[in-house]
Amino acid sequence: TGTRRLSDLRVIDLRAELRKRNVDSSGNKSVLMERLKKAIEDEGGNPDEIEITSE
């Protein structure tokens, strides 16, 4: 578990975070980053400090 910047995430991490939020996880990295950023902002979170749970 740790905090990472949105830009540091790999595509696989972006998809996992989107799936956790029940958000569409298809598309390229830039699309996924925008989608995740919006989802985090909608939750009231900070997209520059994403809580990542290692699996």
Rank of each mutant, 00 (worst) to 15 (best):
E51P: 15
E17Q: 09
L32I: 07
I40N: 02
E55V: 10
S7K: 12
R21A: 01
L32T: 01
S7R: 14
R15D: 02
R4P: 06
A16I: 14
L9M: 15
K38G: 08
E41N: 11
R10D: 14
N46I: 04
D42M: 12
R5Y: 05
P47E: 07
T1Y: 00
S26T: 07
S26C: 10
D24C: 06
N46E: 06
I12P: 14
G27L: 00
V23W: 08
R4N: 05
K29A: 12
N46A: 06
A39S: 06
R4L: 13
L9H: 00
D42A: 12
E51G: 14
R19T: 15
S25H: 14
V23N: 06
D8T: 07
R10F: 02
L32A: 04
V11F: 08
S54V: 13
L36P: 02
R15I: 12
A39F: 07
E43C: 02
I52F: 15
I12S: 12
I50N: 10
T1L: 03
L14P: 01
I40V: 08
R21F: 03
V11Y: 06
M33Y: 06
P47I: 05
S7C: 07
V11K: 11
E41D: 07
L36R: 02
N22T: 06
S25R: 06
R15Y: 03
I50P: 07
L32G: 01
L32R: 01
V31S: 13
G2I: 15
D42T: 09
A16L: 14
P47V: 14
D24T: 03
S30C: 09
K37E: 08
A39Q: 12
I52R: 12
R35N: 07
K37W: 06
D48P: 08
G2M: 14
A39C: 15
E49R: 15
D48H: 04
R10I: 02
V11E: 05
L14F: 02
R15A: 08
V31E: 13
V31G: 07
E51Y: 12
L6V: 11
I12N: 09
L14I: 08
K37A: 15
E17D: 00
G27C: 00
E34V: 13
T53K: 13
G45T: 05
G44Q: 04
N28Q: 08
R5S: 13
R4E: 13
D24S: 10
D13L: 02
S26D: 15
K37C: 08
E55S: 01
L6Q: 02
A39E: 07
R4V: 15
G45I: 05
R15Q: 12
E43S: 09
A39N: 03
R4F: 15
T3C: 04
D13I: 01
V11G: 06
T1N: 00
K38A: 11
G45W: 04
D48V: 10
T3S: 12
K29H: 05
E34L: 13
G44W: 02
D42H: 06
V23Q: 05
E49F: 12
L14E: 01
S30D: 11
R10K: 10
S7V: 12
L14S: 00
E49W: 13
V31M: 12
D8K: 04
L6S: 03
E41H: 03
K20L: 02
D24I: 03
N46P: 06
D13C: 03
D42F: 07
D8V: 03
L18Q: 00
R10W: 02
S54A: 13
S30H: 07
G27W: 00
S25W: 10
R5F: 07
R15H: 03
R15E: 13
S26Q: 08
L9G: 02
A39L: 13
V11I: 13
G45Q: 11
N46G: 03
I40D: 01
P47H: 13
G27H: 00
S26Y: 04
S26W: 03
S26F: 05
R5M: 11
D8A: 07
D24N: 13
T1F: 02
E51C: 14
A39T: 13
K29I: 08
R21G: 00
S54C: 08
E43F: 02
T1A: 08
E51D: 06
L14Q: 01
T1G: 07
R5Q: 09
R21L: 03
L14M: 07
E41M: 13
L6Y: 04
L36G: 03
T53W: 08
S26N: 12
I12W: 11
R35V: 04
R21V: 01
V31Y: 06
S54M: 13
R10S: 13
A16V: 14
D24E: 06
K37L: 11
R35H: 06
D24P: 08
E55L: 01
I52V: 12
T3M: 10
M33G: 05
L18P: 00
I52P: 05
S25T: 07
D8N: 07
K38C: 10
N46D: 09
L14N: 00
K29Y: 12
L6I: 12
V23D: 01
R35T: 08
S25E: 08
D13A: 05
P47K: 04
D8M: 10
E51S: 14
N28G: 15
K38W: 05
E41T: 14
K29D: 06
S26V: 14
L32Y: 00
K38M: 04
I52T: 07
E43V: 08
I52D: 10
D48C: 11
A39P: 02
L14G: 01
L36M: 06
S54G: 14
V23Y: 09
S25N: 07
D42K: 09
R10Y: 04
L18W: 00
E55Q: 08
V11T: 13
R5G: 07
D48K: 02
T1K: 07
E49Q: 07
V23C: 13
V23P: 01
E17G: 02
K38D: 09
V23K: 14
L36H: 02
T3R: 07
D24V: 05
R35D: 02
R5I: 06
K29R: 15
M33H: 06
L18G: 01
E51A: 12
R10P: 08
L36F: 07
K37V: 09
L18T: 00
L36T: 05
G44F: 01
G2Q: 06
D42V: 11
I40C: 13
R4G: 12
D8C: 06
T3D: 09
K37R: 14
K38L: 09
I12G: 15
A16T: 12
D42L: 08
L14K: 00
G27Y: 00
K37Q: 10
V23M: 15
R21C: 04
E55G: 13
E49K: 10
E55F: 01
E41F: 09
L9Y: 07
T53F: 07
L36D: 02
I12M: 15
G2K: 11
E49Y: 10
V31W: 04
E51I: 07
I40L: 13
A39M: 05
T1P: 02
A39I: 14
D8R: 03
L32H: 00
T3H: 04
L9E: 01
N22L: 06
A16R: 14
E49I: 10
N28K: 13
E41S: 12
S25D: 15
V31C: 12
K37P: 01
D24F: 01
V11M: 15
M33F: 11
G45P: 05
E34G: 12
S54N: 08
A39D: 02
R19S: 14
K20A: 15
N46C: 11
K37D: 05
K29M: 04
E49V: 12
R19K: 10
E34M: 13
R5D: 05
S25F: 09
E43P: 01
D13N: 05
L36S: 03
T3A: 03
T1E: 09
N22K: 06
R35M: 05
T53G: 12
I40W: 04
N22Y: 03
T3Y: 15
G27P: 00
A39W: 09
